[in-house]
Simulated assay, not measured.
Amino acid sequence: MKKILLSTVAALMLFSCQNEQTESSDSNLNISARRACATQEVFEAQLKANPALALKMNEIEAFTAKHSLSNFTGRLVNGKIQIPVVVNVLYRTAAQNISNAQIQSQIDILNKDFNALNSDYNSVPALFSGVKANIGITFVLDQVIRKSTTKTSWGTNDAMKKTAQGGLAPTSPTTKLNIWTCNIGNGILGYAQFPGGSSTTDGVVIDPRYFGLSGAANAPFNLGRTATHEVGHWMNLRHIWGDATCGSDLVADTPTHNEENYGVPAYPHYSTCSGNPVEMTMNYMDYVDDNAMYMFTLGQKNRISAIFTANGARASFAQ
């Protein structure tokens, strides 16, 4: 009887421990150890909901192929395109209500990464040194809007951008970059809307745990590069592997990648695609850890600059 009782107690203790472990892991369920960006999935859902978007995107691609920064005639600030940023903070917990200091740290990172002022810029391997680029776009914090919510996670259906669903509508989306910080869920670090989509949902969404340098930011995504990656999408850059095995990111000077890379890949990392090129794993549009991404290319710069030229998809930002 004593043995049975002891066995029962042991079983209950084991069950209790398992429950505690489950609860503990559940509390961190959405903390990602691998980069996960939902931009392509959101884009495909938008195409399915609005077939006319495909035509608009084809027009943008045709325009992009013919234009570069040399055609730019819009407003410059100190010789650079300057983008006002509105940060919309949707929070349920104190940690999600990120500080102004954390928000400013993210703006500072964007300014460094898009102007080749990041401290790791000179780490670009010699093989790629001839194509590394200073994008030449600056960002200035325009406004921070905060809203308390009871929502535990927001998903990727743009609910955070709609007041009717408890979110915050974008502020002047044709002249200001809107960034929402909220718990997205499902391990998603962030996502963005490509140029050409509806202005009512235009902008970038980032989980506060991967935003900026301080407060709630979590390693290995605590250097603000999630925003750099997502703003790259907002400026019409695709994932470097083209979201397909040996796919195309529509940029001529980036090597063909087998697929996304994670963590901190050893250099050189060779592709098995045609020609076996060395993959540009340190490009901001791959999926590596924050401390392993630190460059854009000249081809990506030309692709970005096209959307800000006269009649470009984001020409209103340069008026």
Rank of each mutant, 00 (worst) to 15 (best):
L5P: 00
A11C: 15
L12S: 13
M13K: 07
S27Q: 07
L29R: 13
I31A: 14
A36P: 00
T39F: 08
E41Y: 07
E41R: 11
V42D: 04
F43K: 11
L47A: 07
L55E: 15
N58G: 06
N58H: 11
E59W: 07
E59K: 13
F63Y: 14
F63E: 08
S68M: 08
G79C: 09
Q82K: 13
V85L: 08
V87S: 07
Q96T: 01
I98P: 04
I98C: 12
S99T: 11
S105R: 06
I109L: 06
N111L: 01
F114K: 12
Y121A: 14
P125E: 03
G136N: 05
L141E: 05
R146I: 04
K151M: 14
G155Y: 01
M160Q: 13
Q165F: 02
P170V: 04
P170D: 08
T171G: 02
T174H: 10
N183R: 07
G187E: 01
I188R: 06
S199P: 01
D202L: 12
V204C: 12
I206R: 11
D207E: 15
N218V: 00
F221M: 05
L223A: 02
G232V: 06
M235T: 04
N236L: 14
R238D: 13
H239P: 12
I240V: 15
W241V: 09
D243A: 14
A244Y: 00
G247S: 13
V251D: 03
T254K: 04
T254D: 12
P255M: 06
H257N: 08
Y262E: 08
P265N: 09
A266G: 06
P268V: 02
P277V: 04
V278N: 09
M282F: 11
N291C: 12
Y294T: 09
T297M: 14
L298C: 05
G299A: 09
Q300N: 10
I304E: 10
S305K: 06
F308C: 08
R314E: 11
F317A: 14
Q319K: 15
